[in-house]
Every structure is written in structure tokens, then in C-alpha cells.
Design a protein around this nucleic acid. Structure first.
Lengths: 191, 191
DNA sequence: CTACTATTAGGACCTAGTCATAGAAATGCG
DNA sequence: CGCATTTCTATGACTAGGTCCTAATAGTAG
């Protein structure tokens, strides 16, 4: 019978925990893992080998690379969502996929400002002018949206004078309307 | 007189370029830098020393750490901005600093949805209920906000019945109002 | 010529690993 | 119980991408 007091976890348990530990702390060295799991460094290395987990430096490189790409993606992103159709000063359509980070952890429903962001940036994009800012917006969230759903936003210019453009944006998930917004956009310079 | 053809750049020029090169490509090794600047590895190391630039691995660690923190901040962030005062179902105040990534690169003005996000999430936070989603919102962006400015959002509950709560949010930069919004928030379950 | 800066070279050491080999300990099973 | 098999540990040789320190050389200015 095995010693109950100092009994080690069986291999597959350790490996599962190892994987998790490294996942939410990629900065940990084999040495630290060895002491924390109370096995030798070599054991940790064998485990990593079997699990296909790269060494600390490679992990850091990966995280850093990700960061680099993401930062670029975020700052380049003048429009939230992917624009799939655009007729300047007429109509525009964009698609945004709702992911885990967009929803409230408590109820799994997308935070309103993400739908707003998609609609607002589409309203900016549709306008054929270098200087555009949102002046007013009147929005309605008619149905909750959940993770993994794809939101299709359709924008239409409904009115225009020398300083203001009115854009109506309606967003759908599977033909069901989830969001409606009227945006009054200011064009040309200064406030 | 110095050789005009294979003349090297003077030290201070190389150092300036080195700094820039490393900044927008932290993944480069001293060796690669040495060949690209056509000097020895040791020279690069001396330069880094003088410029206080850490070695490749430390740079990667820094970038990875940043990333890690940011991701945590984003996913933990149930409220956009920092809540500095909160009386449930009464008033709340949050502060958000506008950074480069919040503004349009073309005109340096903050994208509307960031101000909306701050106000909207404050409207959610102020309500003393587990289930809250935004139903309607009527917002106005009265003055453009620019990078480095700190936006103070003040929320106030103005009406409440068994299903709906109305929250008025007004945001200021240095006492100047930049945003006003009326949010109709739905409480309790289901749509 | 000398003083000085800039550059290069070399060696010892470091970390956090790699890979391969060998031996020890624990466990399963007839 | 003994023996096989799995699992773990130990050891040594090697790597990248550095650190730190010392020393030599090249070029330039006074």
C-alpha cells in the first residue's frame, strides 16, 4: 500500500495540473515547478516533453509575439468588426463575432458598449469625409447577445446637410434584430 | 579625411537608430543588430549598456508581462475606467484616462464608443441587481476629447420602477462637459 | 608624440534550458 | 514473493544569448 501521508499525485494528475499551472503562469521555470510539485526538474521536463509544452523562453516569446500582433490589430482597427460592404454615404455592413471577453461573466450577455462600438465605428466609416465625430446617438438593445454569436450591423445614411449626417444602424443575429441606433455624425472641422 | 564610401555612422546616430530598431522589434538579438549596423557584437552591447536597454530575454519578459497584465485588466474589467465613488442605486463616479489607442489617428479625437463604454459600464455598476442590461441609451458627445485627458463620469439614478432604472451619466474633462447620456437599464431576468 | 575615444577581442561565468544515457524507486501482476 | 514495467532521478555534454571584466587596437585631435 502506498504511503498516505507523503503520497504523490499519480502522473496523469500531475500532468494535467502542470498544464494548467503553466497556462495561467507562463513565467514559471522548471525549477519552480519541480519544487512546487515536489518532483525533480527532470520529471518536469519529461512531462513537458510529453505534453508538448515548450520551454520558458519559447513560451515568453510566444506571449510576447501574441502581444505584438494584438496591439497592432487593436490600434490599426479604425472599425470595430469586419466591414464586408461599403457604399460611401449610402450603406455599409460589418460583422463582429462576440467572444468570451465581450460578455458579462455573471450572465453571459454581451456588454452593450461592444454593440455600440461596432455600430458607432460603422457610422464613422460610412461617411465620406476626413473629419467625422459622433454628435448624438439614440440606441436600443432589443435582444441580449451571447458569446460565439455573430452580429451583423447594417448602416444606412438617412439624412445629410452641410454639417451633419444621420446614420441608422440595425444589428442582427440570425435575422433577429438585437440593436437599433440612430447616430448624428458631425462632419467638417472644429466642434 | 575619412573614407566616404564605407564610412560608418557616428556613434550617437547609431545609438539613436539602435534604440528605435529595438523599440519596434524587441525580438532582435545582439548578433543580428551587429551585422545590421556593421559593427561588432561588443559594440552593440556597449551601446545597449549606455542606453540602458536590457538584453533580449529581459525585453521579451517585459513585453510578455505587459501583455499578461493587459489581458487580465481587460477581462477583469467589468467596469471601464476606475470607479472612485459608488452609492448603489444613487450616484457613482468613475475616471478614465484617454490614451493613444482610444483616439482616431487622423484627428486625435477619442472614438465615441470609449466614452459610451465608460458611461454604460458605470450605469451597469450603479444598479443594485445581479441581472442588468442596457435597454436604451440616448447620448450626446458635446466636446471632443483628446489623448492624455482624464474623463470623469458622474452617474445618477433618476427613476426606477420594478423593471427599469433610468441613469443619467455626465462626463467631464476639467469641469467641461464632454458627454451626456440617458441610459434605460433593464433589471431582473429575461428580456 | 601623446591623449583620448571608439571599437574589437577574448575568456570566465550565468541561466534555463536541450538531448542522451544510466541507474534507482515504485508499482502491477502471476 | 520475485520480476517486469513504469516512473522518476541523476549525470554529463552541449546550446543560445547573454553578463562582466580585462586588454589590445584604430583613428583622431591637440
Amino acid at each position: 500500500m502506498r504511503c498516505l501521508l507523503f503520497m504523490r499525485k499519480p502522473k496523469h494528475v500531475r500532468k494535467a495540473e502542470l498544464k494548467e499551472t503553466i497556462q495561467n503562469n507562463p513565467f514559471i521555470t522548471d525549477e519552480a515547478l519541480a519544487t512546487s510539485f515536489n518532483v525533480s526538474i527532470q520529471t518536469i521536463r519529461l512531462d513537458r516533453l510529453e505534453l508538448g509544452i515548450p520551454e520558458l523562453r519559447e513560451r515568453l516569446k510566444d506571449v510576447a509575439r501574441q502581444h505584438h500582433d494584438e496591439v497592432k490589430a487593436l490600434t490599426d482597427e479604425e472599425v470595430i468588426g469586419e466591414v464586408i460592404d461599403l457604399q460611401l454615404d449610402e450603406t455599409a455592413i460589418s460583422i463582429m463575432e462576440i467572444r468570451e471577453e465581450h460578455v458579462f461573466t455573471r450572465n453571459g450577455i454581451a456588454r452593450g458598449h461592444h454593440l455600440f462600438a461596432q455600430a458607432n465605428s460603422l457610422a464613422v466609416a460610412i461617411i465620406n469625409d476626413d473629419f467625422v465625430v459622433t454628435g448624438r446617438a439614440n440606441v436600443r438593445f432589443s435582444k441580449p447577445v451571447r458569446a460565439t454569436e455573430r452580429v451583423v450591423a447594417k448602416a444606412k445614411v438617412t439624412a445629410q446637410d452641410d454639417k451633419w449626417t444621420t446614420v441608422i444602424v440595425e444589428s442582427y443575429v440570425d435575422q433577429r434584430r438585437v440593436f437599433t441606433g440612430e447616430f448624428n455624425m458631425a462632419r467638417g472641422h472644429q466642434d
